[in-house]
Simulated scan of single mutants.
Amino acid sequence: MTLAPVNLDELNADNATETVVIGPSKTYRIDFERGELGGTIDDDEAVLQFIQKAIMTARSRFFIYDDEYGCEIEDIIGKNVSSELLEEEVPRLIKEAIEYDDRIKSASNFFIERNGDQLEITFTVTLTNGKTLEGVSVNV
């Protein structure tokens, strides 16, 4: 005898369908230069801010974030690595940092410019709603 009724049809994996619901992206605006919050943003602007913040945040360093949030790009910035390694690793690291977000489908078309110990990275982001954000740029 069970304590709660069970509908076996609901447990049948063949009949199960998954519906993905993407929540609102409204968040606080961050002024990265001054380290201040001001106002709110939504939609594409919120996604762009998420991308910048996720890439700038070191993965697994801050207890407030789970292990999926952040980027490991700082491990190669400022190191004496070849351009070939940068061309291979930077896109992979950025994709890992942002593609787990349910608003982002993919990142592609990476252009990397090295300026001393810094990188300027420009790429294209395709969102799950069908929009494409071209010329997304971050400096690390």
Rank of each mutant, 00 (worst) to 15 (best):
70 G>R: 03
109 N>C: 04
53 K>H: 07
28 Y>G: 00
34 R>A: 15
83 S>A: 12
31 D>K: 09
14 D>V: 05
116 G>A: 09
114 R>P: 04
119 L>P: 06
75 D>E: 15
111 F>V: 08
101 D>F: 10
75 D>A: 14
73 I>F: 01
45 E>Q: 13
38 G>T: 01
94 I>Q: 02
51 I>P: 05
53 K>I: 01
59 R>S: 08
38 G>N: 10
57 T>H: 04
17 T>A: 10
115 N>P: 00
120 E>T: 15
9 D>I: 04
19 T>C: 10
18 E>K: 15
50 F>D: 09
18 E>V: 15
65 Y>P: 01
36 E>K: 13
61 R>L: 14
106 S>K: 10
63 F>S: 05
72 E>Q: 05
110 F>T: 03
72 E>T: 00
82 S>H: 07
40 T>M: 13
90 V>A: 04
118 Q>H: 08
57 T>I: 05
24 P>W: 00
108 S>K: 13
93 L>A: 08
118 Q>T: 09
91 P>D: 06
80 N>Q: 12
110 F>K: 03
76 I>S: 03
30 I>P: 03
94 I>R: 00
87 E>T: 12
56 M>C: 06
31 D>T: 10
15 N>L: 12
66 D>Q: 00
67 D>C: 13
21 V>D: 10
32 F>I: 13
89 E>M: 11
77 I>C: 13
120 E>K: 12
